[in-house]
Amino acid sequence: MSILEEISGALQQGRAPKVKELVAQAIGEGLQPKAILEDGLIAGMTVIGEKFKINEVFVPEVLIAARAMNAGIAELKPHLSQDDMKAKGKIVIGTVKGDLHDIGKNLVKLMMEGRGLTVVDLGVDISAEEFVEAAVENEADIICCSALLTTTMGEMQNVVELRNSKGLDGKVKIMIGGAPITQVYCDHIGADGYTADAASAADMALAFCG
């Protein structure tokens, strides 16, 4: 087994100290930092995401893997060039106005970061104006809106309409998700994408940014 496979495997098991140790070893052996990032750490999180989608792993296993990834990145960061660290895309994410639930949003953020995307977390109770302003300010590729309540999901339509009215519909995609959200609703309000789970959201975001 190569050291990159070892890093991926240790990350999948959530063994943060081991991942850190292996990353240091890989650097010492002269491996390219970008390869360690892509083929070790991100590869491990990708496997976790795939397993999550088919109920082979559950949220705590994702979280503990993400913690191991962060440990690896902390070790790797001083060795990464600006070019290596260039994100695959930028996302602004938040829970819509009137809704204070953050579990789903945080999971999506974590999955996206695990796949090499930069995520700006706006928090909860975010209005359409705040979403669109943040997207412009951060030059984001995607706005991700989360809602748990049927009574708050209507704000997603406001986000879509405001983006369109600002002429950003060709530049900034809008992804939506949350317990009451469906593909039918996504199509109805003219959002660009809906996924049922956090790992699939990361897949879709990568595809949009690719």
Binding site: V59, L63, I64, R67, I103
Partner: peptide, 16 residues
């Protein structure tokens, strides 16, 4: 129950 978004990582770490 499911911990909220802020406590998820801390709760999970305690489980492990």
């Amino acid at each position: 129950s499911i911990p909220d978004g802020h406590r998820m990582m801390e709760f999970t770490t305690r489980m492990y």
